[in-house]
């Protein structure tokens, strides 16, 4: 906090500040600027005040309705992703080997999907899930299940969720694994001596000790899944119909498809604020559960 002053350190930070300014602060200010104006091209701008925001947040308008629908889709998607990936990640972490050459091998395999870029994942799955030439799509169809992610909204959702689970569960698993590794052996030995069941060991030792990393995992996965864009864009293009049109896709349509810069700018600000708000709530709730630990013992 109040470390000794050394002004030279600030010079080292300057390049970063400059980069952040150019890559984040200035564009963000531009966005704020756009969000309160209207333009008909030719670089002519008109003051519009909070007009875009009001339209955006009013579900009775066309835009407001679309925003509301895609917001629900986003929330549903993130909820599904968290309910699948967090327990699955914990389960995978528990099943991972603790020592020997298998540790390195498992870690490499687990890290593999994390290294694949988003659009490549999209493309892989787009092909993989096709009914005619894709291994998955073909197999599922041959099993007698009618599966076509281009026509059936449910199939499209399933495809995107399975894809995201494949892509990101190992992140949760790796974080949990790190948490598990930090538990001293004595805890497991004590639990055996106390006659604890496997479930009790998980509930009273492993889960409490993993809580800190789980907070990080949940936050990361929420933010990422809430901002999902590339995969559905590549695989389904937001369809069929609007069934996989998330806020981010809506935003791009607005900005680049219709060139409604004002509306798009207002929407990205709202989008941003939603993510910040949800993360803040998550963080506060989850760290409050932890408050007692940080209080020094009363009699110390």
């Amino acid at each position: 906090m109040d470390k000794p002053q050394n002004n030279r350190a600030w010079f080292l930070v300057l390049p970063v500040l400059a980069i952040v300014a150019f890559s984040a602060v200035i564009p963000l200010m531009t966005v704020v600027n756009y969000s309160v104006q209207d333009t008909f091209g030719n670089n002519q701008f008109f003051w519009n005040g909070t007009g875009w925001f009001r339209e955006l947040l009013d579900p009775t308008t066309d835009l407001g309705g679309r925003v509301r629908d895609s917001l629900w889709r986003n929330l549903l998607f993130s909820a599904i992703i968290l309910t699948i990936q967090v327990p699955l990640g914990i389960a995978v972490a528990l099943a991972m080997p603790r020592e020997g050459w298998k540790v390195a091998a498992t870690l490499v395999v687990m890290a593999m999907p994390l290294l694949v870029p988003w659009n490549v994942v999209g493309t892989i799955w787009q092909v993989f899930a096709r009914g005619d030439i894709g291994l998955l799509g073909y197999t599922v169809n041959r099993l007698g299940i009618d599966y076509n992610y281009v026509a059936d909204p449910l199939a499209a959702w399933v495809t995107i969720i399975v894809m995201d689970v494949w892509h990101w569960t190992s992140l949760v698993a790796l974080l949990c694994y790190a948490g598990l590794k930090s538990i001293p052996d004595a805890y497991y030995q004590a639990a055996r001596i106390d006659g604890a069941s496997r479930w009790a060991v998980f509930r009273f030792i492993q889960l409490p000790k993993m809580r800190r990393v789980l907070i990080i995992a949940v936050l990361l996965r929420f933010m990422d899944s809430f901002m999902i864009y590339t995969e559905p864009f590549v695989v389904t293009g937001g369809g069929p119909g609007n069934s996989t049109t998330f806020l981010s896709i809506e935003l791009v349509k607005l900005a680049l498809g219709q060139f409604d810069l004002g509306k798009a700018a207002a929407m990205s600000i709202v989008y941003n604020l939603i993510i910040l708000a949800v993360c803040w709530v998550f963080y506060t709730v989850m760290t409050n559960l932890d408050v007692e630990r940080r209080r020094p013992p009363a009699d110390a």
Binding site: A186, Q189, A190, I193, F204, R293
Partner: peptide
């Protein structure tokens, strides 16, 4: 016999308690 089948208890170097209980 495994640990849990023996009637022994152990106190370790660093205190082991179940934090949430």
């Amino acid at each position: 016999l495994p640990t849990e089948k023996r009637n022994i208890a152990q106190v370790f170097q660093f205190p082991v308690v179940y934090d949430t209980m």
